[in-house]
């Protein structure tokens, strides 16, 4: 079957990530699971793309294919020479290292000299508003602060494409709202391209330039919604609520198909 949707953005925009007709099948023989089948997405340079879909529709699988952690069964993923970093619901900081040392890890991998690493840590901590926390340990921080450290660590990879798999899923609403502002600011300051996976449709609309809706089993793109409204947006504004309602209806329609 052909992919249902191929997304073309404004023609002038070059794409940073090009996912072309991929499928991903797990396992062999009778126990195979087709997680993704015929999915195509193209993400523009410096675009903020939100990805929503019901459980098990292959969102995490898609991100790990884009990150190059795994290979698609068929089709191709092209990141056009961009460096890709990834964040998860758990910050997954190394508990035996201080905050600063955690941020240094990807720089050690890239062979950045020590003095330069220190400078970068200070700069990244300032970016995520955690100046002065370099010597703390992860367990001394709150969940929201850990996610900000994880963000600093991801940026320490010098990545310009950031993949986020429900990064704020475990945070309380107030912290999440503030982190939305923070992410938006950093995305703009650093001119990142972001692929943001979430269950929360309002969050998707609050942050995204565009929201892509995936179907479940197998996962493929069934719809996409350009988001309207000047940034910065407020998650509790009527404009966001209205657009979210449309997407939620479409999502429910898709979910009930599986009843």
């Amino acid at each position: 079957m052909r992919p249902m949707t191929t997304i073309t953005d404004t023609p002038t925009r070059v794409s940073a990530v090009e996912v072309d007709a991929i499928s991903k099948v797990f396992g062999e023989g009778a126990g195979t699971v087709t997680a993704i089948d015929g999915m195509s997405v193209s993400v523009g340079e410096h675009e903020f793309l939100s990805i929503v879909g019901a459980s098990g529709c292959g969102k995490s699988t898609l991100l790990s294919l884009v990150a190059g952690l795994d290979r698609p069964t068929t089709g191709s993923v092209d990141t056009a020479g961009h460096k890709v970093a990834m964040m998860f619901q758990e910050a997954a900081l190394f508990p035996w290292l201080t905050v600063g040392a955690n941020i240094e890890v990807p720089m050690k991998v890239n062979g950045v000299p020590r003095a330069r690493r220190r400078e970068r840590v200070a700069e990244l901590l300032e970016l995520v508003r955690l100046t002065g926390f370099a010597r703390k340990r992860p367990h001394e921080l709150s969940g929201g602060m850990r996610q900000r450290v994880a963000m600093a660590r991801a940026l320490a990879q010098d990545a310009d494409v950031l993949l986020m798999d429900e990064p704020f899923g475990a945070l309380d609403a107030m912290t999440r709202d503030i982190l939305h502002d923070e992410l938006e600011r950093i995305w703009q300051e650093r001119r990142l391209t972001v692929l943001f996976v979430t269950h929360n449709v309002r969050e998707a609309v609050r942050l995204g330039d565009r929201v892509v809706l995936l179907s479940s089993r197998p996962g493929r793109v069934i719809d996409e919604f350009p988001v309207e409204g000047e940034r910065p947006r407020r998650i509790d504004s009527a404009l966001i609520a209205g657009q979210a309602a449309v997407i939620t209806d479409r999502l429910r329609q898709e979910v009930s198909r599986h009843a």
Binding site: L69, A92, V105, V109
Partner: peptide, 18 residues
């Protein structure tokens, strides 16, 4: 070793001796 840490290491490109 917690799978989440292994995954974080993989994402950061940790390989081999490192």
């Amino acid at each position: 070793v917690a799978p989440s840490l292994l995954r974080a290491g993989q994402v950061m490109g940790l390989r081999g001796v490192q």
